[in-house]
C-alpha cells in the first residue's frame, strides 16, 4: 500500500532493492525502515508474542516499544522499525526467544 500521489508530500525513495521475508523475495527502497518495506508488501504480522502466541505488528515505529523485533540476517531480536533496508536482507518472523549461536 504505497502512496502514489500525495497532496503535500513528495517521497524521495532510495533505489529499489530486493529483500527476503521468510524466504519470499520482496522489493523495497534502500534506506527506508524495514517495517515500512514489509508493510508496503502487505506484511502486518512481524512476530508472535512469547507466551500467548498473539500475532504482533508495528506499534511505535520509532524504536521504543520492542513490538517489531525480528530475525535479520540470522540475528535475533532486531528492532526493524529503525533499521534501514539494504539489498538482499533476510528478514524472518522470529518465533520464540533469541538463540545463542
Amino acid at each position: 500500500m504505497r502512496i502514489d500521489k500525495h497532496p503535500v508530500l513528495h517521497f524521495e525513495k532510495g533505489r529499489k532493492v530486493q529483500f527476503y521475508f521468510d524466504g519470499r523475495p520482496m522489493t523495497g527502497h534502500e534506506g527506508e525502515a524495514v517495517t515500512a518495506a514489509l508493510h508496503a508488501n502487505g506484511v502486518m504480522v512481524l512476530s508472535h508474542s512469547l507466551k500467548r502466541r498473539h500475532p504482533r505488528g508495528l506499534f511505535c515505529a520509532i524504536g521504543k516499544c520492542a513490538s517489531c523485533m525480528m530475525r535479520v540476517d540470522g540475528q535475533d531480536n532486531v528492532r526493524t522499525c529503525i533499521l534501514p533496508l539494504r539489498e538482499g536482507m533476510r528478514i524472518e518472523t522470529q518465533e520464540g526467544k533469541g538463540r545463542l549461536k
Binding site: G96, K97, G98, R99, L100
Partner: peptide, 8 residues
C-alpha cells in the same frame, strides 16, 4: 541480565 534466549 540479557535478552531472553532459548534454553541452552
Amino acid at each position: 541480565i540479557t535478552e531472553p534466549l532459548e534454553k541452552f
